[in-house]
Each structure stands twice: as C-alpha cells, then as structure tokens.
Design a protein around this nucleic acid. Structure first.
Lengths: 213, 213
DNA sequence: CTGTTTGCGTGAACGTTGTTCACAAATTCA
DNA sequence: TGAATTTGTGAACAACGTTCACGCAAACAG
C-alpha cells in the first residue's frame, strides 16, 4: 500500500514543482514538502541530499519537457510539409514562449538556480539538455542552406537561441500584461526575420575590426 | 568625527556591493553588514527598511554606472569620428560585456532581484534606467538610416539589446573560462553583423504568417 | 543651568529556515 | 525466531531576517 521510494520521490518532485511555480525558489521549503507529502522532514532528506538536489531535479524535468515540446513542434511542421526556415524557427520560439508562460514561477527559478550553481567537475546534465535545444535549432538552420560550415552554423544557432532567450526573459521581468506578450512576440518576429535575411546576405561573415578592450 | 547618516548609508552600500559581488544574493546578510560597518544590526534597519531595499539601492548604482559606461563609449567613438552603426553597436555591447565581467557576482544578483520583485504601482526607477540604455541603442540605429519609423526603430533597439543581454547571460551561466568570453564575443559579432545586414535588406518588415497559438 | 523631549544606536529576543542525528519502527536476512 | 540492516521520525542546532524595549546623547524649553 505504502508508496515505493521512487514513487515517493516523484510525489515530492511534483509537490516541489507546484511550490516553485506558485512562489518561486523561496517557496521551496523542506517542511512544506514534508507536510504536503505526508512524511517527516527527515524523510525528505532521506530521498534527496538537500533542497538544491530537489530543485535541480525539478529543473531537469522542466528542461526535458521543454526539449520535448520543441521536438513536437518540429515534428508537427514536418507533418504539414513546412520546410521554410523562418517558419520553423518561429515555431520553436513559439513553443519556448508557451512553455515559459505555462511556468511563470518555476522558469525564473530555473534560470536563477542555473546561474547560481558552482563549477562542478565532469559533464553537466544541465548543459547536455540545453545543448539538445541548440542542436534542434542548428538542424533547422542546416536545412536553410546559408552556406555555413558546421562551426559557423553551430555558432549561429547558439546566437539565435540565446537571443530568443534574452528577449523572453527581458520581457517577463516586469508585469505580465497581455501587452507584454505581444511585445515579446513582435521582438521575436523582428529578430528571426532580420536574422534570416542577414544570413541570406552573408551578414554572418561581416566582420568589424572593433574588438573588446 | 562620527559618520553622517548619509555617509554611513554610503558605507553600508559599498559593503553590500562587495558582499554581493563576492558571494551573490545569499551573501548579503544583515549581521555581516553591521559587523563590517562597525554598527549594530538594528542600525542597519534604521538606515534601510529591509535588506531588499539595500539590494535595490546597490542595483540602482550598478545600473547607473552601466548607463554611464555606455554613454562614455558612445562619446569616445564620436570623438574619433566613428559613425558606422555596426561599430557603434559593437562598442555598446563591448561596454556591456566589460561591465558584466567586472561584476561577476553582483550582476547575476541584479537580474535575479529584478525578476523577483512584485508588481509595484507607479513608474519604476528600474525600468527608467533600462529604458535609458534602450534609448542609446535606438539613437545609434537612428543614425543608420534604415528607413524605420519611430515605433519600429524602438522595437528594433529593444530586440537587439535584449538579444545581446541574452547572449551575455547565457554565456556566463557556467564556468567563466577565457574560451567562454571568446564565444560570447563571437556570438555578439555574429548577431550585430546579421542584424545590421538584415535591417539593410528590409528584414524588419518580413512578416511570416505563423502566430503563436 | 536643569528638566524634558526627541531621536538614534543597541543587542537580546522571536519566528522561520535548512540540516543533522539519536532513536524507534519496520523490513530483510540467516 | 532472532539478528542485522534499512528506513522513518521529530526534536534539536545553527543561522537567518526582523523587531523592539531600553538607554544614551543631543537639542530644546523654561
């Protein structure tokens, strides 16, 4: 009858995700988790080393779902026979925006947590998940045939996606009016349009001789 | 002999800035401030309502300095007679990157704090400072003569600067290797190059008919 | 000059947090 | 069944933000 260790971990993570989404990182408290899960505080620390591990696990799940949403969006467009690069990038961005909007509290927590982590040894599962997103974008750019070599295409993918990310996070810092959502989408449309046009005209190779000091 | 109330506030802010820069937001503790400033905990709360107000004040100073750095960079280029849009945008971005690199601990704290604040009534001094940065970029774009109306130019400025911001923040989440700094600058060069090329070829008006669901 | 008022610095104290740990219960093994 | 091992428990600890009754010193009134 009693829940398995793994099942209880899942329950704890589900509770943690709800708490994060409702009140941000400060709302993730050991005692609240224990109470809502029907276990004691000590048991939480029996399942996870500390709250950081809980937070990390929740973030992993979120990033996993985000990657899946991106892949789904791409698959949908493929089914419709859409091959236009601009359309596909915009669809990826739309999936990203939808995801962030669906997790108003926990997505900022993902970023804040990710920024706070110390330099750890070994390959980071975090980076692996983010790289998966970059790879999707790079795949779309590959179909665009802009005459980019692999390195330059990967650079362009990271640049484009970091830019989308910046627009979304900059846009959602303040009040989340509906005007805000419109502004964000206008910026994304402008970015993607300009980016594709720029790549078509070889802007990726336009080097200026200014360097940072 | 004893410090003025204003002088003590300055001292507290200087200490707070150092603490934030060294250990992030979690390192801003009332007792540490009190100890280093040579006053009691209560006195800190006599000068500031709570630690959030201290953090906010530190962030204001940082944003102020960032705006000043941007203006200085523009003035320097003007003195050299540089009017090229790409050069000027890159100089702005370089100033931004330098600033973030100079404040490895407190700049993430600015972002995390800014993201956490509740919807407050009235005009936000935060937004005012950020708008000042956008205005500088918009001014540079105005000199580019891309055939943009005011609204569209403002949108382009926000888009471009949010993108730069995204590249910088995405790049500095993990280990701050020197390779990381190079990657960031490559992305910024690519972004600005593509952006300018895209604007020159009317990419800002290239609308796709895909909309978010 | 003295008594009063006002303002500010003080640090003990409160409530809440993450985390630990000695112990009890339960489960597994021999 | 008895022993051994694992798992669950909640009281206890340290550290945190924040408050507040108290005392001191300066400013003011008479």
């Amino acid at each position: 009858m009693a829940l398995d260790k793994e099942e209880m971990s899942e329950k704890v993570l589900a509770i943690a995700e709800t708490l994060l989404n409702e009140g941000g990182a400060d709302n993730l408290k050991a005692r609240t988790i224990a109470e809502q899960a029907g276990i004691s505080v000590g048991s939480v620390y029996n399942l996870f080393a500390d709250l950081d591990e809980v937070h990390r696990a929740v973030n992993m799940r979120l990033l996993d779902r985000l990657g899946a949403a991106g892949l789904t969006a791409m698959a949908d467009l493929e089914r419709q026979g859409v091959t236009d690069v601009q359309h596909r990038i915009l669809a990826m961005a739309a999936a990203y925006v939808r995801f962030v909007e669906a997790h108003p509290g926990s997505w900022p927590a993902v970023l804040a947590f990710n920024r706070r982590r110390a330099t750890r040894p070994g390959p980071d599962p975090y980076d692996a998940l983010l790289d998966a997103l970059f790879d999707i974008v790079a795949g779309v750019l590959e179909a665009g045939d802009f005459g980019l070599d692999d390195d330059r295409r990967a650079l362009a993918a990271r640049t484009l996606w970091s830019s989308v990310h910046g627009i979304v996070t900059s846009g959602y810092v303040a009040n989340s009016d509906s005007r805000q959502a419109e502004e964000i989408w206008h910026q994304i449309e402008l970015l993607v349009g300009v980016f594709v046009k720029g790549l078509e005209h070889g802007g990726a190779f336009a080097h200026a001789d200014t360097k940072p000091a």
